[in-house]
């Protein structure tokens, strides 16, 4: 198995999180290399969102470490990460541009020109003065990406970015992610249930089941002859379930 280049952009070490008695994430070690589009897969309740929340510092870890470019300092880490977990949320009574200004203030501020560039990138320039309450779901997702890019991050964390999007919106999102990787050199960590999309996007995959990593590696190496990602995912998770029953 070919390992990606070190140092890792993102590395988790023995990450653990419980809700009461229920262990949601246990001993999780992930590694994401520079320039990767890393697909983070798992059945519902596997712990994907919890993991992403821990990486972004939204929730506390019970144990383990999150290293971003080798640093465990959460503020330093978040300065290099842009992310959306469980859908972007905005102030519906403000315009898209004003929302970006507000979130920019929490990242050390941002030039108006930078806002223009980001709005252009996500194709919202013409609607940027409209209230967010008038935006479609796809437009909000794109504004969410613009928000995540405010601090010019090196790593983009996206939780279900194509949730609720129509086929055109899904394609636009895919093209945007690829453009960000190819033109801006971003590393992308993305979770999704739309496996066909991840199949087209990701060069590296990690699979989580019951809070534990059950597979990780380059996409091509996880797939068997002629197998697509969906079949590989079902095979791997079924193997783990089978092993657990035995």
């Amino acid at each position: 198995m070919t390992e990606p280049r070190q140092p890792w952009v993102l590395e988790t070490r023995n990450l653990r999180r419980c809700y009461g008695e229920h262990v949601v994430v246990e001993g999780l070690n992930l590694t994401v290399g520079k320039g990767d589009i890393y697909g983070f897969l798992g059945p519902n309740g596997a712990g994907k969102t919890t993991t992403m929340r821990m990486i972004l510092g939204l929730i506390a870890r019970d144990a383990g470490e999150v290293l971003v470019f080798g640093s465990a300092d959460p503020i330093k880490a978040r300065a290099r990460i842009g992310g959306i977990v469980e859908g972007p949320r905005f102030y519906p009574y403000l315009s898209g541009r004003e929302n970006l200004r507000i979130f920019a203030a929490y990242s050390g501020g941002c030039e108006e020109q930078r806002l223009d560039e980001l709005l252009e990138l996500v194709r919202l320039r013409e609607r940027c003065l409209d209230r967010v309450s008038t935006y479609s779901l796809g437009m909000r997702q794109r504004l969410g990406i613009a928000q995540a890019l405010l601090n010019a991050p090196d790593l983009l964390l996206l939780d279900e970015p194509s949730n609720g999007l129509d086929p055109k919106g899904i394609r636009e999102m895919r093209e945007l992610i690829l453009r960000l990787r190819d033109e801006n050199g971003l590393t992308v960590f993305v979770s999704s249930h739309v496996l066909s999309e991840l199949d087209r996007l990701c060069n590296r995959i990690g699979i989580l089941q019951d809070g534990r990593k059950v597979a990780e590696g380059p996409t091509a190496e996880l797939l068997r002859d002629g197998e697509d990602l969906e079949s590989a995912f079902l095979r791997i998770t079924a193997q783990v379930e089978g092993a657990q029953i035995k």
Binding site: L58, K76, V85, P88, F90, F103, N151
Partner: peptide, 18 residues
């Protein structure tokens, strides 16, 4: 209630300053 707090605390700013 709007869910924007998650967007705020995921930015590089200490919570006590917010």
């Amino acid at each position: 209630s709007l869910g924007t707090m998650a967007m705020i605390v995921s930015r590089p700013v200490a919570r006590w300053r917010v």
